[in-house]
Nucleic acid binder design. Structure first.
Lengths: 343, 343
DNA sequence: TTTTAAATTTTACCCCCGTAAAGTTTTTGA
DNA sequence: TCAAAAACTTTACGGGGGTAAAATTTAAAA
């Protein structure tokens, strides 16, 4: 780090003794220039502190190295965790992740789409809000930017969808619960925020009918993203009303289950498998905190890593081929049973 | 949305019948042009879909409307929640937040600083890793970009620090615990990831000495950001070794407490206040999930909202004056006791 | 050594907008 | 109504770099 300040590529080309277009070529792909040229540039790089201006670069490219990541609610540890995985994969691929949270708001989601389009991303990984999404806005965005949807499925949008197999996973835990005790009732939000919830509800109903057990839906009121709160309040209500039709509760997701466990605890109902237990409670997702509940939550896992990896992989195959997918594929990863002490 | 496609400001100026420099002026401040001119531009804006190219804008400004937000670990709901608050305040102020997580890694933190500097942000809100931070890198960044530090304090860096009063808050809960039962032992990580932990440890020691109670530090092994795991394992260990010197445990933060509660539960130790309880456990932070633990966690809150608001306020007073602070101020918000059922 | 292909340089133009300077029009206020 | 002030237009330049085309050099192959 010596010598004069370098203001632009012109000056850097000068001090490194190479022409500017070749320097430009180097920065776009160091392997595209002769080895000896590369060496000269890199030795100049050690002497002088220079890097190309990102705005000037992006202005001249139709596409940038930016990859947008949009999640519906980043303060939900599930999305935080999957976003973390996605970011790291995108970085590893030499791209630049731009992480945006819609904070549960349709307006914010639309703003995020606009912000993203303004920076001409090479592609985007989207988990839309779902029910609350402005479908037309999602569609416009996907048309303009190669996108892979993950977690929340909106039919027909994006070049691909990568997500969790809600149906298989729900059936799996239903079967486990039926095999090991009373058939479960299903605890959920009456009007779920997340579209996966509908698939889980349907899968539960189907599974129970197939096994010849009664279907019991326990529906909590409330909207938004404060699932634990809804679980706690809804859980308290069903317990107080003695409206539990069975001793086994399958919650639509782990966050609801965490709330429900709190409700059970506060009402003095012991949850677990042993003789002294009054209730079995299971969740869905293998949420980062589900192993720390009391008792530890039995659940079905989502394969976070696989979903993140495949989403990124699928997106880059689009981005790097420069083509749009001829046929939209949908990839589902199976859930695994995570047996802990709550059910 | 009719008419031909507009490619740039030149063309837009043409169709709106105004000169390009005036149009440019309008986009920088709609109030800086005559009312009638503004009306003509805005009616053209309704007919034609045009917005200025963000890269070209930023290339020509020394400063952008970008505000960097760097947090050490976004998958920690505490940071997710505070980032959410910060983002919304920054947006409300008409700026553009760029949220970056260091994912607990020094290298990533430094990369984040570089990425941010590359986009010439008007300012930055930083919560450094702390102990793991590359101090020189933080200092360089703060010298180059007006920055307000929050949550984790590194002395002398940034134009201001806004955070939680760890000392007051720790003393508050110590006094509460001593007043209502046995004096607490302090459960923490031996080598804490977060710098606040050291202040809490010291405040605990001081408070106990001042009140004439013995100081007991229970130190869990392990590093990183998986605090619940450390709390569970460390808690299991101290319980198994019968090395609990008192029936009251004050955890250095809520996430450790969540782990500790799980340990107690799994070891059959009933936590709470009543007669049947073997243990009291308290935390620190009022973590988003602390109200859903079993039993609900007694803790001291951090004033998330105030910290976020003041940080943003302080940063914009710098940004908009265009000056650097003559004297660095440090603002601490007091914690409040949150009494729930665990202690 | 010659031929050929590949890499580089030169030249030139483009991207899209900020902004300063000078000249022109419109608005304001007395 | 008229001069001063304000707003606008025209003109011109600059920012930092992508990229195409033609000319030149270098390296590899025959």
């Amino acid at each position: 780090m010596t010598g004069r300040k370098i203001r632009n590529m012109e000056e850097f080309a000068e001090v490194s003794g190479i022409s500017r277009p070749t320097v430009s070529k180097y920065f776009n792909d160091p392997d595209s220039v002769r080895k000896s040229t590369r060496a000269r540039i890199e030795s100049a790089l050690e002497q002088y502190d220079y890097r190309p201006n990102i705005f000037a670069i992006n202005q001249n490219r139709k596409l940038t190295k930016n990859i947008g990541i949009v999640v519906p609610y980043l303060a939900d540890p599930f999305f935080a965790e999957i976003a973390r995985n996605l970011e790291m994969l995108v970085i590893a691929a030499g791209y630049h992740p731009i992480l945006l949270s819609s904070h549960g708001s349709t307006a914010q989601e639309n703003d995020n789409f606009e912000s993203l389009r303004a920076i001409k991303p090479a592609g985007a990984l989207l988990a839309p809000l779902g029910r609350a999404s402005d479908k037309a806005a999602v569609e416009r965005f996907c048309k303009a930017v190669p996108s892979v949807l993950f977690d929340s499925h909106i039919s027909g949008m994006g070049e691909a969808f990568v997500g969790h197999d809600n149906i298989q996973a729900t059936k799996l835990i239903c079967e486990y619960l039926c095999r090991t005790g009373q058939p479960p009732a299903f605890f959920e939000m009456r009007t779920p925020t997340n579209p996966n919830a509908y698939r889980r509800r349907n899968a539960y109903c189907e599974a129970m009918e197939r096994m010849g057990h009664p279907v019991h839906l326990l529906q909590a009121e409330g909207g938004g993203w404060d699932f634990e709160k809804i679980g706690l309040e809804g859980g308290t209500k069903v317990i107080e009303e003695h409206s539990l039709p069975t001793d086994t509760i399958l919650c639509s997701n782990d966050r609801l289950a965490i709330g429900f466990l709190a409700a059970a605890y506060q009402k003095g109902l012991r949850v677990g498998l042993g003789a002294g237990a009054a209730l079995r409670v299971a969740g869905h997702d293998d949420h980062p905190f589900s192993r720390y509940t009391c008792p530890p939550l039995t659940t079905v896992s989502q394969d976070y890593t696989a979903i993140a990896e495949r989403s990124v992989e699928r997106l880059f195959s689009l981005v790097e081929s420069g083509e749009r997918a001829e046929n939209r594929d949908e990839i589902f990863f199976e859930g695994k049973l995570v047996m802990r002490q709550s059910a």
